[in-house]
C-alpha cells in the first residue's frame, strides 16, 4: 500500500509573526519555515506503518514556491521515499489545496492519505475533510491511534468529551492529532540520502486544476493585548481580591 502525506510549510511557531505592509498578509522576509507540526506527525505515522510492513511506500506532497522543497527533503530525511512539489506562487486556500491534493492522489494508486488536522498558520482545519469529500472517501479525523489491518483502518479520535473509535475501509483520509506519536528527528545519514531521493515538480495547470480560491483575506490585525501583570503576595490576598475587586467568588 502506498501512503500519500501532504506536507505544508508554516512559520516557526517559536517566532512571533509580523504583519506585512499591505495589511492583509504576514511579512515573510525573515521567516524561518518548518514542517507543520501536525504534518510531521503524519509523516512519522506513515513511516511507522511502512516499518511495520503495513505500507510499501511513503510519498510526501507539498504546494507552494520552489523552496518548499526544503521541507519535503526534511520529511524524506525522516524516511519518506519520494516527494511531489506542486509549484505555485498563488494564495492557496483550503479548498484549492484539497483540489490540488485530489489531483495528485488520482495520479498514483494510493491506499491511504494521512495529514495534519490543521496547519498552525491558518488554523482552519479544513483540507483533510474537503479532500475526503472530493475523492468520495471516508474520513477519520483527529487521530490519536491508528491500526491498519485487512484493508481497514481502526482509528481512535480525540473528540469533545473523550475518545471515539471508528473503522473505515481503505482508501481513506486520516488526520492526525497531537497524541498520535512523537516524530523522530531526521538522522544524519537520512539527510544525505534524502538529497538523492526523487522529487517531482508539477504545476497546478499540469494537474488540470483551475486555481480559484473561495476565501480571501481582506485585512489582518494584531489582537488587543491583554493587560495583566498585577501580583499578589499571598493566597489570602488572592482570595480577598477575587472576592472584593474581581467579584468572581
Amino acid at each position: 500500500m502506498k501512503i500519500l502525506v501532504p506536507v505544508k510549510r508554516v512559520p516557526d511557531y517559536q517566532v512571533k509573526v509580523k504583519l506585512a505592509a499591505d495589511g492583509a498578509s504576514i511579512d515573510t522576509s525573515q521567516t524561518k519555515w518548518i514542517v507543520n507540526p501536525f504534518d510531521e506527525i503524519a509523516v512519522e505515522e506513515a513511516i511507522k506503518l511502512k516499518e511495520a510492513g503495513a505500507a510499501s511506500e511513503v510519498v510526501v506532497v507539498g504546494i507552494g514556491p520552489e523552496d518548499v522543497a526544503t521541507q519535503l527533503r526534511y520529511t524524506m530525511a525522516m524516511g519518506a521515499d519520494s516527494a511531489v512539489l506542486v509549484k505555485t506562487s498563488e494564495y492557496v486556500d483550503s479548498s484549492l489545496a484539497a483540489e490540488i491534493l485530489a489531483a495528485v492522489f488520482r495520479r498514483g494508486s494510493y491506499g491511504l492519505i494521512i495529514m495534519g488536522k490543521q496547519a498552525i498558520d491558518s488554523d482552519a482545519g479544513q483540507t483533510p475533510q474537503i479532500l475526503a469529500a472530493l475523492l468520495q472517501l471516508p474520513q477519520a479525523c483527529f487521530a490519536s491511534k491508528v491500526v491498519i489491518a485487512e484493508g481497514q483502518a481502526t482509528v481512535t479520535r480525540e473528540v469533545d468529551g473523550g475518545l471515539e473509535t471508528l473503522r473505515i475501509p481503505l482508501p481513506g483520509v486520516i488526520s492526525t492529532d497531537l497524541r498520535l506519536n512523537t516524530p523522530r528527528y531526521a538522522p544524519l545519514p537520512g539527510i544525505m540520502k534524502a538529497k538523492k531521493k526523487p522529487l517531482e515538480e508539477l504545476s497546478i495547470e499540469q494537474l488540470g486544476v483551475k486555481p480559484t480560491a473561495r476565501v480571501r483575506i481582506k485585512r489582518m490585525t494584531y489582537p488587543q493585548q491583554r493587560q495583566g501583570g498585577k501580583k499578589v503576595a499571598s493566597v489570602e490576598e488572592l482570595v480577598t481580591v477575587l472576592q472584593s475587586e474581581a467579584k468572581v467568588l
Binding site: 504576514i26 490585525t221 494584531y222
Partner: peptide
C-alpha cells in the same frame, strides 16, 4: 468556501477569525 472558527461578524460583512495561534486576527 468556508471560514473556520469565526469570532465576529464585521460591519462590512467580512468575518473575523484568529490565525497563527491568535497572534493575528484576519478579516
Amino acid at each position: 468556501g468556508q471560514a473556520s472558527d469565526i469570532i465576529a461578524v464585521n460591519p462590512d460583512g467580512s468575518l473575523k477569525r484568529p490565525m497563527y495561534a491568535g497572534d493575528i486576527l484576519a478579516d
